[in-house]
């Protein structure tokens, strides 16, 4: 195995040999003819240069042997060209996908911005009751859990003009009105939480008249339990009285 050449190991060329070495390089470069080496008297007097000269002649004779011609395989050009075409098609397709994808994302962004802008312009004050709402002590007012996104009776008539995204963008309406800030939603949060939790934490509302029979029935439960009979409520009494009245009005048929 040939050892790797290390420039630091290269033997320094003595000054008297320099001209010969340079001549050798010029011959090997093809700048000088090989016959010019014979005209140099120095190698005859220098052992190193004689060795260099012999080696150079061997190298020159080896390099003078023509290389075997490289034969291109049959159909190699067509193989290359078809590979190039396939590569170009693939790259064109990838470019097209990238373009379409970019346009789709841009369109989605534009539509999203437009929707946000439109929603803001239709409902400039999303929670108008908030500032005026006053709570009466001891009588909590019903809180609207979620604001109605579309008021049943709009204040303004709907714009008969068809919506054009381009016009909105050109006039700058879509961008002039910024979307509803996040702080509005955050400000609503405490009210929403209290509306959800008040029925469970605050004292219950007194029962209405509708629930009075049920209350009576429940209050009679201890008595009924001790007597083993079901409690008779007003409703049951009324129903029984109605039954008797109906029975009394029926005339028995003669046999």
């Amino acid at each position: 195995m040939l050892k790797t050449f290390d420039p630091s190991e290269a033997e320094p060329i003595p000054p008297q040999c320099r001209a010969t070495v340079e001549l050798l390089q010029r011959v090997l470069d093809g700048d000088e003819r090989a016959e010019s080496l014979d005209a140099d008297p120095h190698p005859a007097a220098c052992l190193s240069c004689r060795e260099r000269l012999r080696a150079a002649r061997v190298l020159l004779s080896a390099l003078s042997v023509p290389n075997e011609p490289v034969s291109v395989p049959v159909g190699f050009t067509d193989t290359i060209l078809s590979a190039v075409k396939a590569d170009q098609r693939y790259r064109a397709r990838r470019r097209a996908f990238a373009t379409v994808g970019g346009l789709a994302v841009a369109a989605a962004l534009v539509i999203g911005v437009w929707f946000i802008a439109k929603g803001t312009s239709e409902n400039p004050n999303p929670n108008p009751n908030t500032p005026q709402q006053k709570e009466v002590v001891g009588q909590p007012t019903p809180v609207e859990i979620a604001p109605d996104p579309r008021p049943k009776t709009p204040d303004t008539a709907p714009d008969p003009r068809p919506i054009r995204i381009g016009d909105e963008l050109k006039s700058g309406l879509a961008t002039l009105e910024p979307p509803k800030p996040l702080t509005d939603s955050v400000a609503l949060a405490p009210k929403l939480v209290s509306a959800l939790t008040d029925p469970f934490t605050k004292p219950a509302t007194p029962m209405g008249a509708d629930l009075e029979p049920a209350r009576k029935s429940i209050s009679a439960l201890p008595t009924a339990t001790s007597s083993g009979l079901e409690p008779v409520t007003d409703t049951a009494q009324k129903a029984f009285a109605r039954f008797l009245r109906d029975v009394g009005s029926v005339q028995p048929k003669p046999n």
Binding site: F5, V58, A62
Partner: peptide, 13 residues
Amino acid sequence: LHRARLELLDRLK
């Protein structure tokens, strides 16, 4: 190129 030739000569020798 010079170094390549020197290495080649070394190998040939």
